[in-house]
Amino acid sequence: MLLEACSLCYSVLYSSILAVLAGMVRLITHNLLACHAKGCTSNNFPLQFQDAAIELRDAEFNADFLRGFLPRIEWPALVGAARQLGDASLPAEQPEMLDDEFLQKLHHVLLEIHVEEGAMVCPNCKHVYPISNGIPNMLLAEHEIG
């Protein structure tokens, strides 16, 4: 009887741990992926989220990483994607001063917003890249490869 109770507790605990685990698609990744179907070379970025189910999860803050990564970011695409997902904390123009308050906001948008389900759609060729369990499927079909 006692044993049963324990194993029940354990399974409840374990499933609650697993509930906060999943794949992701963070906005940092979204900012780095473009449509790569054959012949789709312009207006193929940023991909548009469709039916996105999001989750927020804490990530480790590392100011050096953010400062180092900032030059790689397409700023308007990041701001647009965040707004599409309901986060309007970032300014439309990338600020010159990288103070702590700004870095915290950037950290949250880049690393803590996770798209679990839905799809990313190419604005140009309309290719649909499905997201399942937080893992985007970026494979191309046979007729799309170069």
Binding site: G23, T29, L33, H36, G134, I135, M138, L139
Partner: peptide, 11 residues
């Protein structure tokens, strides 16, 4: 992040 794609046809 984790992604499914062929590195020879990468996005």
């Amino acid at each position: 992040d984790l992604c499914t794609f062929d590195v020879t046809q990468n996005p």
